[in-house]
Design a binder for these strands. Structure first.
Lengths: 159, 159
DNA sequence: GTCGTTTTGACACTATGCTGTCGTTATGAA
DNA sequence: TTCATAACGACAGCATAGTGTCAAAACGAC
C-alpha cells in the first residue's frame, strides 16, 4: 500500500515545512521591527509595494504585485489611509480604481522601516552566503510559478 | 542619507518576498488538495505532525514541532477532535496535558491526504532539481535559526 | 453603438495565527 | 518538604488573509 512514500521525508515536503517556519519567523520579526513605528508586517509590505511603484497604483495592482487578493489588501490600504500614510488620487485610466499614493508621512514611515530592516538583512545574509540566498530565491520562485501553473488554471481572483 | 540601499533589492529581501509568495501558494494548493477530504491546510499539517509522533503528543508538543503557539494549535486540535479525527489519551507524565492521538478515521484521512500530495510533490521536484530543493531547504533552515537567534532571546511562548 | 466579459471596489463572513491572561500541574532548588 | 518557577490547557480578543457576492466601470467583439 505504497508504504515506501513517507510524505514528510520528500524533499518537496521538507522545503515546504521550512517555508512555513521561515514565513512565520519573518512575519514575527517584521512585526517586532516596525512596531515602534505603529506599523505591522502586512502594512509595511503594502507600503513597500506602493513605494516601488512611481505614481501610485490601484488596490488590485498592489494585490497582484504581492500575490494576495484584492480584498485582503483593501483593508490594509484603508487602515493606512486612516493612519494618514497613504492617500487616494484620481486614476486617469479608471474612474473607480483610484490610485493609492504615499503621503509624506507614509514616505517617512517607509524609509524608517527600511532603515530598521537593513542591518537585520545584512546579518541574515552573513548567516548564509549571498549566492546561496540568490539561488534559494530562484528555486522558490520557480516552485511558486510551477505551483500556480499546476493548480488552478482557474478564473476570478488568483492570489 | 544612505540612498545606496534599496531594501527591495537586497538579496535577503528578495528571498523574503519569495517566501511570502510561496507560503501563500502552498497553503492555497493544500487547501484545494485536501478540501474533498473535509480538511484544510492547517488541519492537514497538524494531522501530519501527530502522524509523525508514535503514541501521540500533547498540544504544546505539536506546537513546538510546527513552530507555532500552543493557542493556535489548540483550536485546530479541538476542531479535529470534533470531526472525530483525533482523540485525547491520558498522559502518564502529565495529568492535564493529554496526549493527542489519531483515530482510525484520522489515520485514513492523513493517508488520503498524503496520497493526494505525492504526485504534486513529485511534479514540483521535477520543476527544479532535488539537490536544489535540499540546498534551498537548508538555506531557509539556517535563516530561520539565525532569525530566531537575532530576534527575541525572550521568554514565554516562543513560536 | 450595443452587449457580454472582465476588472474593480465594497461588504459580510470564515479560517488561521498571534497576544494576554488565568488556574492548574510539574519541576527543581533551597 | 516546601516553595518559586516553568509548562500546560483554556478562554477572550485582535490582525491577517481567504471566499462569496454584488454593483459599477472599463474593455472587446460584433
Amino acid at each position: 500500500m505504497n508504504a515506501d512514500f513517507d510524505p514528510f521525508l520528500h524533499p518537496t515536503s521538507r522545503l515546504a515545512l521550512e517555508v512555513f517556519r521561515l514565513n512565520g519567523a519573518l512575519i514575527a520579526a517584521g512585526d517586532m521591527l516596525v512596531e515602534p513605528l505603529g506599523l505591522t508586517s502586512a502594512r509595511w509590505q503594502v507600503l513597500g509595494a506602493i513605494t516601488q511603484a512611481e505614481g501610485g497604483l490601484p488596490t488590485a495592482g498592489i494585490a497582484r504585485a504581492m500575490g494576495l487578493t484584492r480584498q485582503s489588501v483593501q483593508r490594509v490600504v484603508d487602515d493606512l489611509a486612516r493612519l494618514g500614510l497613504v492617500r487616494f488620487a484620481p486614476n486617469p485610466h479608471h474612474k473607480r480604481a483610484k490610485l493609492v499614493q504615499l503621503t509624506p508621512e507614509g514616505r517617512m514611515a517607509s524609509a524608517a522601516a527600511s532603515a530598521r530592516w537593513a542591518p537585520l538583512a545584512e546579518a541574515l545574509a552573513t548567516a548564509v552566503t549571498v549566492p546561496a540566498l540568490d539561488e534559494a530565491a530562484q528555486v522558490l520562485h520557480r516552485l511558486a510559478t510551477a505551483l500556480a501553473a499546476l493548480t488552478a488554471p482557474s478564473s476570478g481572483d488568483t492570489p
